[in-house]
Simulated scan of single mutants.
Amino acid sequence: MAAANVLTTREAAIKAARAKEKADVAAREAAAVVLRLFDNDADLVADLLGVSAEELEREAKPISAARAKEVIETLRARAERPSRPRRAPQTRVERAAPSQPASDTPAPASAPDDVRADAA
């Protein structure tokens, strides 16, 4: 049982280390992107973010200009693409609910929609 606990803990530590590395890369890329968007004005960006300019530049340094540009293009493409509305999944009760029986009274007739008539 103790060995299983050690293995589980070790696997969790490995997953956490991988997640930390991914987060570090994302943070470095974000720093490089924001600097590129603000024409590499580290002092301005540092003031906006409330961090030191040296720290910001140190974070951004390992990221190439090409990678920063690629991230910017991805963000722009994502911003331009309209989001699709998502429907909430139906519960089992909603799917299994019987439909309402048709009533004996006819539906009232309505006047044609003016907007549709104009379009035709």
Rank of each mutant, 00 (worst) to 15 (best):
A111M: 13
D41F: 01
A119Q: 04
A26Q: 05
V45H: 00
P89H: 13
E80Y: 04
L75G: 09
A68W: 00
N40G: 11
L37Q: 09
A23T: 02
R67M: 05
A111P: 10
A13I: 00
D114S: 10
R92P: 04
A66L: 03
R36E: 04
T9Q: 05
D41M: 01
E21H: 07
D43C: 05
A65G: 10
A102W: 00
A53E: 04
A12S: 11
E70S: 15
A4W: 05
E94H: 12
K22H: 01
A2N: 13
L48A: 06
R95L: 10
A88H: 01
R92F: 03
D114C: 03
E55P: 02
A102P: 04
A97M: 08
D104P: 02
E80Q: 10
A111D: 08
S99Q: 15
L35T: 06
P98H: 02
P101R: 12
E73W: 00
A13E: 15
S52D: 14
A107P: 04
E29M: 12
L56P: 15
A117Q: 10
L49P: 00
P101F: 09
V115W: 10
Q100P: 07
E21G: 03
R76N: 12
K69G: 06
A42D: 11
E59M: 10
T91W: 01
V33S: 01
A107K: 02
R18P: 01
R78V: 05
E70G: 15
M1T: 14
R81G: 02
P62K: 06
K61C: 03
P98V: 15
K61Y: 04
L75Q: 14
V115Q: 13
K61T: 11
P106A: 12
A65K: 03
T74F: 07
R95S: 15
A3G: 09
E70K: 12
S64M: 02
E29P: 04
